[in-house]
Computed example of a mutant assay.
Amino acid sequence: MSLTQVPRSAARVRDGRPLQKGRQTKASIVEAALGLATQIGLEGLSIGALAEATQMSKSGVFAHFGSREELQISVIREYHARFESEVFYPALKEPRGLPRLRALFANWMKRTSIEIDSGCIYISGAVEFDDRAGPVRDALASSVQVWHAAMKRAIASAKDEGHLNPDVDEEQMLFEIHGLILALHYEARFLQNPGSIARANAGFDRILRQYGARSSTTKSSKKE
């Protein structure tokens, strides 16, 4: 082998370093963009504003995304990944049925109580893109639909376990639960009414009773 030839393993190490650095840089940009989006909304994001926030050049930021639209979609994906890691996955540790449904709502409320100050991408994004077709709206809607599907599965599981009435309409119950979260954002963030979190929790307990909840401590006999 001549001195000008580089072993394949060495080439991978050499070429992998810029690739890894590039991913880290992009992740840092998305982190900064997510912070901005919670304050000014997805529509307020721009390559220029992000370049200023990250102290990078506009061309440097643009090279990682290619367009403002791709930047917005990357922020939505990151927000969704964090939402799942904080709300959905921890709840899977709970038994099937009502305990898991309660855990999903409790985790959702915990995150929502934090977002009263920082803002929710799902809610602000829905306001910004509700009547605007395109990839950004599609990404937002898809993320919310994935979360809704998870909640409906939890409600159906609670029915199967006998923790809720067998004739419960999963879609209707989900609609009412989601309504509590939307009302909480409006009451606590916009109107700044004290006690909103307690009222949302009380509303959830009332919904469970309405649909025949037996016990929050019922143990499940079924596996995942």
Rank of each mutant, 00 (worst) to 15 (best):
I40H: 09
V61Y: 05
L104K: 04
A183C: 11
E128L: 04
L180E: 03
R132Q: 15
S196I: 00
V144H: 05
A198C: 09
D131T: 14
A53I: 08
L182E: 06
A27N: 12
P18M: 06
A91F: 01
L208K: 04
V75F: 03
L50A: 02
S46T: 14
A91E: 02
A32E: 08
C120S: 10
V146Q: 11
S196R: 01
I116N: 08
I29Y: 03
S196M: 03
F65A: 00
G22L: 07
D130S: 13
P99H: 04
E170R: 14
L164C: 00
G125T: 00
S28H: 14
A63L: 01
A150R: 15
R8Y: 13
D117N: 11
G179I: 02
L45M: 07
K223I: 14
E187S: 14
S57I: 06
P99V: 02
S220F: 02
I114G: 11
N201G: 08
L98C: 01
L180G: 02
R199Q: 08
G66R: 07
S57E: 13
T38Y: 04
Q192G: 02
A133Q: 13
H185C: 12
A141N: 12
Q192S: 09
P95M: 09
L34K: 04
Y89R: 09
F190Q: 14
S57N: 09
R14P: 05
L98S: 03
H148L: 11
Q20K: 12
N165G: 14
D138R: 07
T4I: 13
I197D: 12
I76D: 00
V13H: 06
T4C: 06
Q39A: 13
V30S: 00
D169S: 11
V75C: 01
P194E: 13
E161L: 04
S2H: 14
D117F: 04
K93A: 15
L34R: 07
G16D: 09
N201H: 09
L98A: 00
W108V: 02
A200H: 02
E84W: 09
M173C: 08
F62V: 08
P7V: 04
C120Q: 03
K159I: 15
S57W: 04
A213P: 06
A91T: 01
D169R: 11
N165A: 15
V87E: 02
R111W: 05
